[in-house]
Each structure stands twice: as C-alpha cells, then as structure tokens.
C-alpha cells in the first residue's frame, strides 16, 4: 500500500506517470501545484473508485481553490491529515 504524493499539475508528465504507477489499495495525495485538479472535476482520478484521492487543504487555500474543492465535493486533508496518511501507508512516492 503506497501513498503517492503528486506535486505537479494534473496533465503534467509526473501526473501521468503517477496515474500509471498507482494500484488499487494505494492512495493519491495532491499537494502544491497538483491541487489545481480541484478545478477539473472531470479528471479521471475523480471518477475512479480504485484508490482514494485527497487534496491538501493549505495548498488549496493558498491558491484560492478551496471553494472549487468544496463545490465539487472533493476530499481534502489538512497537514495533520497528510501526516496521518503517512502513518497509515508504510511507503510513499513523491512525483515531481
């Protein structure tokens, strides 16, 4: 079970690689530039149910995307939730 931490925008090379590498049972955490995925509710990652996807709240707020995330009912975690995810998942990969 791996926590995939994506730091880049949804259509970037790193995002595509992460999408290919992720397996059912893993989780995907979107931080930094990756939180712009909140503006695109049609992305594949929001439509699948194989793995949970979370947006980092502080990075959403910093970019003014918090309303978009709540409007589209997308799951968010704060920085403490980020730590909890790393407690839960033994391994992590940062995609950048």
């Amino acid at each position: 079970m791996i926590l995939h931490i994506l730091t880049t925008a949804p259509l970037s090379d790193a995002a595509r690689q992460a999408e290919q590498a992720i397996n059912p049972g893993d989780a995907l955490l979107l931080i930094e530039e990756a939180v712009s995925a909140a503006l695109q509710p049609d992305l594949d990652c929001w439509k699948q149910t194989d793995y949970p996807v979370f947006l980092l709240e502080e990075d959403l707020v910093a970019r003014g995307f918090a309303n978009a995330a709540s409007h589209h009912r997308l799951a968010t975690v704060d920085i403490e939730g980020f730590v909890q995810l790393t407690e839960q998942y033994e391994q992590s990969i940062t995609w950048y």
Binding site: T7, E32, E87, E90, S92, I93, T94, Y96
Partner: peptide
Amino acid sequence: CQRLITFAN
C-alpha cells in the same frame, strides 16, 4: 526511519 518522505519539485 520508519518513514522517509520526499519533498521535491
């Protein structure tokens, strides 16, 4: 460590 977390851009 039990956890090594990478922060990179």
